[in-house]
Each structure stands twice: as structure tokens, then as C-alpha cells.
């Protein structure tokens, strides 16, 4: 099993954190994992992306050439990465910030993650809404592992923040289970 994920958005949207989160879930399930961020000057307020590779065999290049999943947080990211999508690729769009009309190769999943996060009065958890959607749709990682890792990562920030993250995650999962019932 190999799952290559590209995540892209803008600085502050939690792109890198979502990548680390999925990487840690992968590690917990016993896979080999690599996480490669964009780094340096470009990360300050600008473009943000990372590559996450999860595999049961050795991972050679951490630079992903053929993504199985592309997650885009905004229009600019979709415009940049849509070209990498193949027939077998799942493209997950934050529909709050990505227009409806963009055609991409592969399977398109749209979820209004930013709006759902705002409804929780926690704009920062849009990435966790997406995480829930990803886990539900791709069905590679166990939900329970994902929840355990979330608690671990929040650590001392548990409490209200943990509750909002759990709600965001569940929101993302339920949205997919409802809207994409026939596809999962």
C-alpha cells in the first residue's frame, strides 16, 4: 500500500499541521511515512504546501510525482496542483474557497471546511474538518487511530480546543458519509 498526498494552501490555514497530523496517524498504524514541507521565505504568509507519503514498503523520493490525493485549501492551490491529478487521484477541495467550476482529473470531493470551522467559532480547525473528510473518504486509516493522534498532538491544549477539534473532525467525517454516501 502506498498513499501519496499533496496538501496545499496559504500560510496560516494549517496546511503543514494537517500534513504532520496525517503523517503521525500513518506512523501509528505502522506505516513508513515521510513529510516534506515547503520551507523558508515562501512560508511567511504566502504559499504553503507539503508532501506526505505513507507506505508499507520503503519510501524512496519524498517528493511526490504521482499523488493519490491532492488536498487544496484555496483556489490558487487548486490552480497550481490540479495539473498533477490523474484518473486515480482524489482531489479534496475546501469548497468555501475553491470555485465549483474547476474541472480536474480524478475524483473530486468538495467540503466547505472553512465555513464549517467558522460555524464552530474556530477558523483554525478547517484543516481538521478536512482531515475527517479525508479519513472517511479514503478509508486507509482507522478513525480511532486518528482520534488518538489528535488527542496526543493537542497535548496540553486539551479542553475546549480538543472539543472543537473533535467536533470538526466528526463534522468532516459525517459530511462525507452523507454527501458522498455512494462513493465510500
Amino acid at each position: 500500500m502506498t498513499e501519496n498526498i499533496i496538501i496545499a494552501g496559504s500560510g496560516g490555514q494549517g496546511v503543514l499541521t494537517l500534513g504532520v497530523y496525517l503523517a503521525r496517524v500513518g506512523v501509528k498504524e505502522g506505516f513508513n511515512v515521510t513529510w516534506l514541507p515547503s520551507y523558508g521565505a515562501e512560508k511567511r504568509g504566502g504559499f504553503s504546501f507539503c508532501n506526505v507519503a505513507v507506505s508499507d514498503s520503503e519510501i524512496y523520493s519524498p517528493v511526490i510525482e504521482e499523488p493519490d490525493t491532492i488536498i487544496v485549501f484555496d483556489q490558487r492551490s487548486l490552480n497550481t496542483y490540479a495539473v498533477m491529478a490523474r484518473k486515480a487521484t482524489t482531489v479534496i477541495e475546501n469548497s468555501s474557497l475553491v470555485k465549483e467550476d474547476a474541472a480536474v482529473a480524478g475524483t473530486k470531493i468538495r467540503i466547505p471546511a472553512s465555513d464549517m470551522a467558522n460555524d464552530l467559532r474556530a477558523a483554525k480547525v478547517a484543516n481538521i474538518v478536512i482531515a475527517g473528510a479525508y479519513i472517511a473518504f479514503k478509508n486507509i486509516f482507522k478513525t480511532q487511530t486518528a482520534e488518538t493522534v489528535m488527542t496526543e498532538m493537542l497535548g496540553s491544549k486539551a479542553g475546549e480546543m480538543l472539543e472543537k477539534n473533535i467536533a470538526a473532525f466528526a463534522g468532516g467525517m459525517n459530511y462525507i458519509k452523507e454527501k458522498y454516501r455512494n462513493r465510500i
Binding site: 506512523v27 513508513n32 511515512v33 515521510t34 513529510w35 516534506l36 514541507p37 519524498p62 517528493v63
Partner: peptide
Amino acid sequence: DGLLGQLMEN
């Protein structure tokens, strides 16, 4: 190199 420095891996 920068890739190995920035990379996370288990």
C-alpha cells in the same frame, strides 16, 4: 541537504 534537513520520517 535541505530536503534531508526539512524532511520528517519515522
